[in-house]
Design a binder for these strands. Sequence first.
DNA 1: TTGTACGCGTTATCAC
DNA 2: GTGATAACGCGTACAA
Lengths: 393, 393
Amino acid sequence: MAREAARHEEDTTMTDAAAPARRPTVYDVAQQAGVSIASVSFAFRHPERLTDATRERVLAAARRLGYAPSAAARGLARGRTGTLGLHAFDLMLERADPGARADDEQSAVHRPTLGGGGVIPWGMTDDETLSDPRAFPLYVDEIQRGFALECWMMGRPVMVTSGSDSDVSIADTAGRVDGLAIFPTDALPSALSRVTVTIPTVLFSVAPDDDPYHRVRVDNRGGIRALIDHLVDDHGIDDIAFVGRLESTDGTERFGEYLASLRRWGLRPRPEPIDATVKGEHRLIEQLNALIDAGALPDALVCSTDQHALLAIDLLSARGLRVPEDVVVTGFDGILAGRLSTPTLTTVRQPMEAMGRAAARILAGQAGPLPDGQARFDAVFAPQLVVRRSCGC
Amino acid sequence: MAREAARHEEDTTMTDAAAPARRPTVYDVAQQAGVSIASVSFAFRHPERLTDATRERVLAAARRLGYAPSAAARGLARGRTGTLGLHAFDLMLERADPGARADDEQSAVHRPTLGGGGVIPWGMTDDETLSDPRAFPLYVDEIQRGFALECWMMGRPVMVTSGSDSDVSIADTAGRVDGLAIFPTDALPSALSRVTVTIPTVLFSVAPDDDPYHRVRVDNRGGIRALIDHLVDDHGIDDIAFVGRLESTDGTERFGEYLASLRRWGLRPRPEPIDATVKGEHRLIEQLNALIDAGALPDALVCSTDQHALLAIDLLSARGLRVPEDVVVTGFDGILAGRLSTPTLTTVRQPMEAMGRAAARILAGQAGPLPDGQARFDAVFAPQLVVRRSCGC
DNA sequence: TTGTACGCGTTATCAC
DNA sequence: GTGATAACGCGTACAA
């Protein structure tokens, strides 16, 4: 008898007595059913190779013992885990603990006592904060939903992770999955350069340089062009400023097309975007206030994201300015919060679910053949102009 | 030299030549860095035990090779995967492919060609269907968000799965995680009885019988009571019907409290709920139509979920009836769609994010000590009455 | 501080 | 059809 079997036999005996909740293994099931471990494995992976009687005997024993095959062992033996991953950098953590951004520790999310026995009062749940449509669902959430939907349809588990831009963080995630989709960050993390060699990877953005990653992205230029054409052509607006940040490639593309579109209409763009960087104090707040104080506010603010646009609307309202009567404000992304704001937000909607689904199919190898001569997928989705109230329509 | 090392050396040579994208292992890194595999492992798990020079040399080699430690191997060695899981039964698949329910195959979700080269047109993305607030975010999505948030804060990966009510499906998920949270289903799957023995499990509902699972749930009775008190006391309504299904324990609790509350007010409840079963044709549709045709519509419909309520409002509108003028309609859950409907929906909101977070903390062993004499957590959250337009307010 | 050797639970390849 | 056994890659006790 092999050493493993010996060990297991011994442990099993112990388990029968004290039941220390050790997870049962093939050895335990094999012993219970009076077969070899190979038959146990076959009963789950190749049922047709076993006699009906044997298979039933094995499955019955497995049921009795509460046996669940270890995915870790299977992954090790097969060389693949079967799961697809979706990784976000600290981006998400910022949302996770709204209080962490502010200085006061009191605003941190509550952790009600769960063993208390009584009903946990509403006030301990922070539901007002967590359920704010401004915080959920966002761009990442809709992408994630599409990714998860497609994975479910393909019968594959999804692993969702988040971490910092470090080798360890990204490598840890990469070590758990067969394929990895990564959300864009402002500065595309350097850690990425070591992951892809061995694992298929999709980025939800254009990357700064040439690399082997698949791409799933939106036609930023087409979206901004449609938006500016609407503002200029349908509303006759000619003084348009851009609100955003240029750290991300999406932001750069959108700002670039803002410049190009205005020039195409013979208008003069503002050479620098109004900075919407979030770190520390919102720079958008001080810059917008400065423009208002100087009486230099443009007729329209074309914002790089819906979140910037909603923040701008708040700010303008607080200063007594009306949107769209005094200033037109538009967004980009098409998150749900833009349907709930006052006024409702004119924006460029990305087909986020479809993009998430595309990423999953690429990683699962279900995306069809690569185009001739291409080493990777580069799926570019058309966005759609969504006209609501904030542009004056 | 051990057999493993021999194999790896051989493979590495092959890799250097043809680069068949085999994932690098500790052996590869050790060889590159000129150290033993133990040092490689230490460099990642116990950095302090290594000389700075050695550690850096190892990490550099790992970077160069694109090494990511295999979670499968680590999980096998340690006996734990480190991940927490969230499992849904076919529930989700129904949402995944709206076309699958209908008979016509044309309504299935599109799968645009991704290697085509051009921009994928908007019409291929099904965005109108997928982004409908009626479909997302729902109860499960908000729970999931809370679960993921808490896991992220604890630095744990999340695994999201979906499957049928079979031993294999639930066991497969259970084999991948250290703890498992499970969404309620109408009939609590029998497969559950074999999982928990070895893995901590949380159910988001009351279960029918006595079992070892942890619970995270809402105070259904308190919620319905507050709602009915509002309808009777503030609006003077006395003919109230209940819309729902009794297959789930949540539904049963809510219906039970509907009966109790009406009796407490001295009113006569309808002994049977209006059946909102979805299978096949919506029975709610035919039953409501029958009530309308018979002139037997009650003054108010208290629905077991927001989704039922929204469907009822659609139906009543289609028949030319006004909500709330002709019939009052209320929901339960507090999903976002209830803020976007016409009229906006009066409902009982569950603190879904908080419930998802509670489940994650319980599974991670971060929920504090168990109450005296209890073998499991049973966290009951208070819901909150959200008064909007559909009740006549 | 670093290296060696073994075990983790499964799958797959062979004999029988 | 069933059983024995060798990988799979990592963590770690123990030896050096």
